[in-house]
């Protein structure tokens, strides 16, 4: 079980360059998330050694592995297309890394059984690769990677080719396997729900650089940049210049009010932060400091199963706020706790 320290690695191609530093603690499950082309898959290939860095250093358990060859790094990678060898059956695929270590046949056989049990595919030894379903292939690929007893396990969008239901099931299985084996895992995804539910730490990348590293709660609730805020979930971005002190409702005990500063004129909040106040609605206005935007026009209500996402127009600004039920009124007031507001320049 390894820990990884990446310091100032750099690669550059004609149309893309990447530059990053980070630390992956031992036994953690870290996900890297970002839009297509942000360099997340490239990062995995740099760590695995499939690509070489132009500058910087990668250390595994304190040992510099920057120049080490791929096959000597002991870092396993599960590919997006699984890359199961089609000319070998399931057993031979999983046995492949163990044979490389000259393990005894009988040991290999036993281990294959155990890895298959771990991924929930007991009895699959003799299956042919082309007859497996997508989810089965994914799990065999995982078993094969684990069979190389890697220091670090890298997963490159391992669930992207599967349907939504299977994805939820398998991501839980991956988390369980991680917790059982305790293996340090880096998980690349472009799905924020996956990143938030699965990982201990989330690394958000953009254009070859890290935007933020934090717990799922941190990157969601206190995103350090507007990009992270918008990438990790829905929300409202407002121009703060339309606000004045009349919109501020605060408790008398607090002295700090709405502070406008010229370099932070944009504010952002998640739809669940806003509270809708309709005629006759109950709202305890004195509980916390908040912004109070009165008389916003309801422009659209989108049914989301458990609730509605309400689109509003207030002073030319578009807002989105959740509502537990369909609104009858076409004009509402909105209250947003000050603690939920995130300011950006």
């Amino acid at each position: 079980m390894g820990s990884l320290l990446i310091s100032d690695i750099r690669v550059s191609y004609p149309e893309f360059s990447l530059e990053l530093s980070c630390e992956i603690p031992q036994g953690s499950l870290v996900s890297i998330i970002g839009p297509s082309g942000c360099g997340k898959s490239t990062t995995l290939q740099l760590i695995s050694g499939l690509l070489s860095v132009n500058a910087g250093k990668i250390e595994l358990n304190g040992e510099d592995i920057t120049q080490k060859e791929v096959n000597k790094r002991n870092i396993a990678l599960v590919f997006q297309d699984y890359a199961l060898f089609p000319h070998m059956n399931v057993e031979k695929n999983i046995a492949y890394p163990m044979k490389l270590k000259n393990m005894k046949r009988s040991v290999i056989r036993r281990e294959v059984k155990e890895y298959l049990a771990l991924v929930g595919l007991t009895g699959y030894e003799k299956r042919v690769i082309s007859e497996l379903s997508g989810g089965e292939k994914q799990r065999i690929a995982l078993a094969r990677a684990l069979a190389s007893s890697p220091e670090i396990l890298l997963l490159d969008e391992p669930l992207s080719a599967l349907d939504a239901k299977k994805r939820k099931h398998l991501r839980q299985q991956i988390r369980d396997i991680h917790d059982t084996t305790g293996i340090t895992t880096i998980y690349v995804t472009h799905d924020q729900e996956e990143a938030l539910t699965l990982s201990d730490t989330v690394i958000v990348m953009r254009d070859g650089k890290i935007e933020q590293i934090g717990t799922p709660q941190e990157v969601y609730s206190t995103p350090s940049t507007l990009f992270v805020a918008q990438f990790m979930g829905e929300g409202t971005l407002m121009d703060a210049s339309v606000l004045s002190s009349e919109h501020l409702k605060r408790q008398s005990s607090h002295t700090d009010g709405l502070q406008f500063s010229p370099d932070k004129m944009n504010l952002f909040f998640r739809p669940e932060s806003g509270i809708l106040v309709t005629d006759g609605g109950v709202f305890p206005p004195t509980l916390f400091d908040h912004l109070y935007l009165s008389d916003a026009a309801v422009t659209h209500q989108e049914y989301r199963g458990s609730r509605y996402l309400v689109s509003l127009k207030w002073k030319e600004q578009s807002l989105i706020v959740y509502s537990p039920r369909h609104l009858k009124a076409d004009r509402v007031d909105v209250a947003i706790p000050l603690k939920d507001l995130i300011w950006y320049s």
Binding site: N71, A76, F79, D81, F85, Y96, L100
Partner: peptide, 18 residues
């Protein structure tokens, strides 16, 4: 042959010639 087959083999510990 997808390049990922060769890459998978390398990451699993096989040398390039193997």
């Amino acid at each position: 042959i997808p390049a990922s087959y060769q890459m998978a083999s390398l990451t699993l510990g096989a040398s390039a010639s193997r």
